[in-house]
């Protein structure tokens, strides 16, 4: 067993993929000489050289598009975008090319591309570096959207994503980089088709992903002290959604709270809530609750940022509301 943090796990996964797969290369802003904005790729340039670890200028649209072109050309590019807000500069390529080419060409083209980026708030970076836009991307047919919430997933998801024949976007939560865990030595691929139950329980299903998983697990511990046994589901894949696991859990607990760092309106949490209503309506004992980010651009000041985001206390309150006195 080795103690690893999320950042080191991402690096191990990346290094493993680049060493094992000669068609893979990493490309993005400051991935090489700087060592990666979040130090994820530190040391890889020295080990693998500038062809495999390719620094780019500030041209998100061109280097993401080049990743798509290189994928069509037979390579397996891993493109890093510094943060989700910057990915909007490449939205044309992601939406109009990566997501559409297979279908628009009648199945002639595959785009086996991985795009990694950081997402989420919690580090006082204000309204242009802190948003959770993965729910937007999860709206788009043709893309696969992943959110590693644990050190193990941070290490293993990349390989599975890279072997997938379709474009995969991986959202790494900025607040998790210091998260630590004990892992076995080798990089093991992670199942990206299924959600994972991180805590089994019987009274309420807490459905979440990414950065809010740990807040949700903390909330579950608080609830346990009150005799409320919460089940915590980590979605891992935001598109496609593992609806089966969610519905099975809700049918068991008869209550659901969805915790999503995205904004509430038109969100992934709204989609999950709708699916629960469509497929488990008669199994519910209480209306579905949602804990989302307040509908403001994320503010800078610490107390304001904290108030904007889902927190263990707000998750506990929402769970209690679904349970009422009927545990």
């Amino acid at each position: 067993m080795t103690k690893l943090n999320y950042r080191e796990a991402l690096r191990d996964g990346l290094r493993d993929a680049l060493v094992r797969e000669p068609r893979a290369f990493l490309m993005g802003l400051d991935v090489g000489r700087y060592g990666g904005t979040y130090a994820v790729s530190r040391g890889l340039l020295e080990e693998l050289g500038p062809e495999r670890v390719r620094d780019t200028p500030l041209s998100e649209s061109a280097f993401v598009g080049a990743g798509i072109g290189a994928a069509i050309g037979g390579l397996l590019p891993i493109v890093e975008i510094m943060t989700v807000n910057f990915s909007l500069l490449a939205l044309d390529q992601i939406m109009n090319n990566a997501a559409t080419l297979r279908h628009m060409t009648g199945g002639q083209l595959a785009v086996p591309l991985v795009i990694r980026m950081t997402t989420g708030a919690g580090r006082q970076l204000a309204a242009q570096h802190s948003h959770s836009l993965e729910g937007w991307y999860a709206h788009i047919p043709g893309l696969r959207i992943l959110a590693p919430a644990t050190v193990e997933d941070a290490r293993g998801m990349l390989w599975t994503a890279l072997m997938d024949p379709d474009p995969v976007l991986i959202f790494e939560h900025a607040a998790l980089f210091g998260l630590e865990a004990e892992l076995e030595g080798a990089v093991t691929p992670v199942d990206i088709d299924h959600a994972k139950i991180r805590r089994a329980g019987k009274h309420v299903s807490l459905v979440t992903y990414g950065g809010t998983l740990h807040k949700t697990l903390a909330a579950a511990e608080t609830l346990a002290k009150d005799g409320i046994d919460a089940e915590v589901i980590d979605l891992r894949s935001l598109r496609p959604l593992d609806t089966e696991t969610i519905i099975a859990s809700v049918k068991k607990t008869r209550r659901a709270v969805i915790i999503d760092e995205g904004w509430r309106s038109g969100s992934l949490s709204a989609e999950i809530s709708a699916r629960v209503m469509e497929q488990a309506f008669y199994d519910l004992d209480a209306p579905v609750e949602r804990v989302c980010t307040a509908e403001v651009p994320i503010p800078y000041a610490k107390q304001l940022e904290e108030a904007a985001l889902p927190q263990p206390e707000t998750i506990v309150q929402a769970a209690r509301k679904t349970v009422g006195t009927h545990v």
Partner: peptide, 12 residues
């Protein structure tokens, strides 16, 4: 939109 694609094909 095709220019970055062409760039990537050439890079490959």
């Amino acid at each position: 939109g095709g220019l970055p694609l062409a760039l990537g094909l050439a890079l490959a």
